[in-house]
């Protein structure tokens, strides 16, 4: 549940890109790495990484999940923090790998790996103590809290602390901010009608804030929410927080 207590500032970090970012939001991944590099860190993106294995684990296919998880463990070998631009993938690796590998020959390795996993915004706030200089136009945004960031990684206020550092950004909280958007991986298609009801309510609360952008730290939620926003024809854009922060600091 909890993140490590303020580790000292490392020189090098790993970056775990996540499978959704890899295929759909590479710009968010690049932005995440750039935010770290701007702070003077060396960022390593191992080319052999793929997916945290959460989709299979959550579907109950544990052997398949272990095979893919094992690939990550074998890929991120150095003792560097593994920074993840997703509360959900970070939660999978940090809180579920130990149980997934319990009783396996590589259980100890899995535990050590899990202990190095950190969520991006938490790392920016607590380890790097980042200071952001906003160069963008005034804008009103709202935040969507990811379930796993909050409830598995204990990341609640960190992303909002970052957004509040931006002088031109007004952050308006949406109603039911901490309620699930209805993505839930395969849930979105397995229980499409319930998922639709959930995301429609989410979009309604976001629209009520009057914000022109919804920011999130998880691309699963973002894909779900912006998909519903676009379908409803609402003039709200969705951004991954890494991309948004970098855009603002570049004055884009």
């Amino acid at each position: 549940m909890s993140q490590p207590s303020r580790p000292s500032r490392p020189e090098t970090v790993y970056f775990f890109g996540t499978c959704l970012i890899d295929l759909f939001y590479p710009q968010a991944g690049l932005a995440g790495m750039e935010l770290l590099r701007r702070e003077g860190l060396r960022v390593v993106f191992p080319q052999n990484q793929s997916c945290c294995a959460q989709p299979a684990r959550n579907s109950g296919y544990l052997d398949e999940a272990r095979a893919v998880a094992r690939r990550q463990i074998e890929t991120f070998v150095e003792d560097w923090p593994i920074v993840v631009p997703s509360g959900s993938c970070a939660g999978m690796m940090r809180t579920h790998y130990p149980a997934l590998f319990e009783g396996q020959p590589d259980a100890e390795r899995a535990r050590a790996f899990a202990g190095r996993v950190v969520e991006l915004t938490w790392f920016l706030v607590h380890v790097l103590d980042i200071r952001l200089a906003d160069k963008g136009e005034p804008v009103t945004v709202t935040w969507h809290a990811s379930c796993h960031a909050m409830r598995e990684m204990g990341v609640r206020d960190e992303p909002k602390q970052l957004l509040r550092q931006l002088s031109g950004v007004t952050l308006v909280e949406a109603g039911h901010e901490t309620e699930c958007c209805g993505f839930g991986g395969t849930f979105a298609v397995r229980h499409a009608e319930i998922a639709a009801a959930m995301v429609d309510d989410k979009v309604t609360s976001i629209a009520r804030t009057g914000a022109s952008a919804v920011i999130s730290g998880d691309c699963g939620c973002l894909m779900n929410i912006t998909g519903a926003i676009d379908k409803a024809g609402r003039p709200i854009v969705g951004r991954h927080i890494a991309e948004f922060l970098l855009e603002r600091c570049h004055g884009a």
Binding site: L23, G29, L30, M33, F45
Partner: peptide
């Protein structure tokens, strides 16, 4: 049914990271 389809990025993060010269 109530969302637009997700948009594939054309190039993966793996490719773009390599092209950007990020250490692997």
């Amino acid at each position: 049914r109530n969302r637009t389809r997700p948009h594939f990025a054309g190039q993966t993060l793996h490719e773009r990271a390599r092209r950007a010269g990020i250490d692997h």
